[in-house]
């Protein structure tokens, strides 16, 4: 691995001070499962970060809080912790499922949700779940705090709008309302190690037998994470049925092509994302 200096920040203030002083040269490390792979791939002649800033000692960036309506997750919370959290299992079960599919046990023990988000991979499994939860991202810098809908931080694949002097300090979203059902399904070449090529997160809210709210977000399907409003509209006001779910699935695959264009993988991806969507909607309704 190319050489670098390492600073372990004991407090958020210390980390923000450092970022404020020398922004261009510093790279934050959390679990390191993306960053170390990236640094190892650099040849000795390439320029790496001068300083790697380890934020893992900062306790205030860890853990899950529920104030009765809003759930706040510290960016350093690991996928294992999120998958096992009773709060998340009860109020955002699809996020627990999404995190439980990330990598293998060895990764989930150290990889963090903040790293998953900021790495910005279109295949990041926690992201579609957070998108349908309408999550917000909170950033801090020496100059204060910035809150953004999560959806808006993604600029292009592997690139978010985080500033050089900022740290992601929280992800937060509302508890799912009563009567909401959700599902997350991931398709991988192999179960654990294959980074998912496609996944889907859905939430639907039923009143009686009528769908009154729907949120759908596919992963690895569109260049940027987003909800597919056109497919959601098909569901709203209707009763759940296989036919309806198929139409919504078709709409998601159509929207994928609108946004990504036709690629070598399209003939495979198009029917698969449609079927995944239909299956996730069916699964959501059948649960509870």
């Amino acid at each position: 691995m190319i050489p670098f200096n390492l600073v372990r920040a004991e407090s958020l203030e210390e980390a923000l001070d450092l970022l404020d002083r020398q922004p261009p040269d510093v790279k934050i490390i959390a679990g390191g499962t993306d960053l170390l792979v990236e640094l190892r791939s650099l040849s000795p002649r390439e320029k790496g970060p001068g300083i790697v800033l380890d934020i893992t000692p900062i306790d205030e960036l860890k853990g899950i809080e529920d104030n009765g309506s809003t759930i706040t997750i510290g960016p350093l919370t690991t996928h294992r912790e999120i998958a096992a959290s009773p709060i998340i299992r009860e109020h955002a079960p699809l996020l627990s499922t999404a995190c439980s599919t990330i990598g293998a046990t060895q990764h989930r023990n150290i990889a963090t949700i903040g790293g998953n988000v900021i790495n910005g991979s279109p295949a990041a499994d926690s992201v579609p779940a957070l998108i349908v939860l309408d999550a917000e991202a909170v950033f801090k810098s020496k100059n204060g705090e910035r809150v953004s809908p999560l959806k808006e931080i993604f600029v292009k694949p592997y690139r978010t709008d985080i500033k050089e002097d900022e740290i992601l300090t929280a992800l937060r979203f509302e508890r799912l309302p009563e009567g909401a059902r959700s599902s997350f399904i991931k398709l991988g070449r192999r179960n654990a190690l294959a980074i998912s090529r496609m996944n889907i997160a859905v939430i639907i809210v039923l009143e009686g037998n009528t769908i009154v709210e729907a949120r759908i977000s596919p992963g690895s399907a569109t260049p940027l994470p987003d909800r597919i409003k056109a497919a959601e509209k098909i569901l709203i006001g209707n009763e759940p049925s296989e036919e309806l779910f198929r139409r919504a699935g078709k709409e998601v695959s159509g929207e994928m092509i609108n946004r990504s264009g036709i690629r070598w993988s399209t003939p495979y991806k198009q029917p698969v994302i449609a079927a995944l969507t239909t299956r996730a909607l069916r699964e959501a309704v059948e649960k509870r």
Partner: peptide, 8 residues
Amino acid sequence: PVNSCLIL
């Protein structure tokens, strides 16, 4: 269990 190759 962790992958020691991914830990500084």
